[in-house]
Amino acid sequence: MPLAEAFPIPNPYQPSLMRIDDFFDETSDVRTLRLRFVDGDEEREFSGWEPGQFGQFTVFGAGESVFALANQPWRPNGNSEDTPIIECTFRAIGKVTHALRDMSEGQVIGFRGPYGNHFPIDDWLGKDLVFIGGGIGMAALRSALLDVIDRKQEFGDVVILNGARSVADMVYTEEMPRWQDVDGVRVVRTVDPGGETEDWDGEVGLLPNVFEGLNLEPDGRIVVACGPPIMLHYLFLSLGKTGYSPEQVVTTLENKMKCGIGHCGRCYVGPFSVCRDGPVVTWAELNELPKDY
């Protein structure tokens, strides 16, 4: 007897099948996938997502891994021509991501989600924005910044600070010129000292230092930052020094997650379940949590 007959609750762990439509290699170990639903019904029923949400992606035989939904948010609008496409950017670093890296166009993977809360973009209307992404952390910001760029007239100035260890590790290099082309958007690229090449025309320096060097007045500005814990630690110090209040700073927690629905217990920071209550938090909210992330 299948479960559905025994107990009429959908199985939250069962993924939808997605076909790899296309992919793009951002760096030697970072890839962006474009995915489409295999099943027409699931495609029609998909409720879309908001920037900041994430999904669980399955490589059958290897397991699941969590990535941010990285393209411009898809919101159902009743137009059947407009089918949802999901993009995710990942670094091949573990068992699942290496297996995923070995897949090619046309192959089928699993997706379940979206999960978690999202960036409060509507609260940012009219404000100046700074997106600060360290390494693969840019992937968690991309959905939000694409949404913002798309509706640029609703926001103030936008600064995008993309930092990487080295020039070869920088993600989204192909598309950054397109972001820069939008009026009122400024893209700043930086690599860690020692990571530059001879023809590098961006900044050289650690993200927090480069940020300080931009001298962006805190007034009326929102900072959206995502990156490795050590980067965030120093970035918060810089933000404090330059007069930003914790309410102005938004980040995402990147704890290890498995279930996506607050049950499996591993992403907890104190009473806060990152997958269910997060991943998007303000610096102010983060200050209320135990230092356990």
């Binding site: 762990y13 399955t58 059958f60 035989g61 290897a62 397991g63 699941e64 498995k258 279930c259 049950h263 499996c264 217990g265 591993r266």
Partner: peptide, 23 residues
């Protein structure tokens, strides 16, 4: 009640297996 989820699989079939885990 913490748990882990892993694929127990061979080349033809497998399952998403939930097992006890601990903090």
């Amino acid at each position: 009640s913490c748990f882990d989820m892993n694929h127990e699989a061979n080349a033809w079939c497998g399952e998403q297996c939930r097992s006890w885990d601990a903090c």
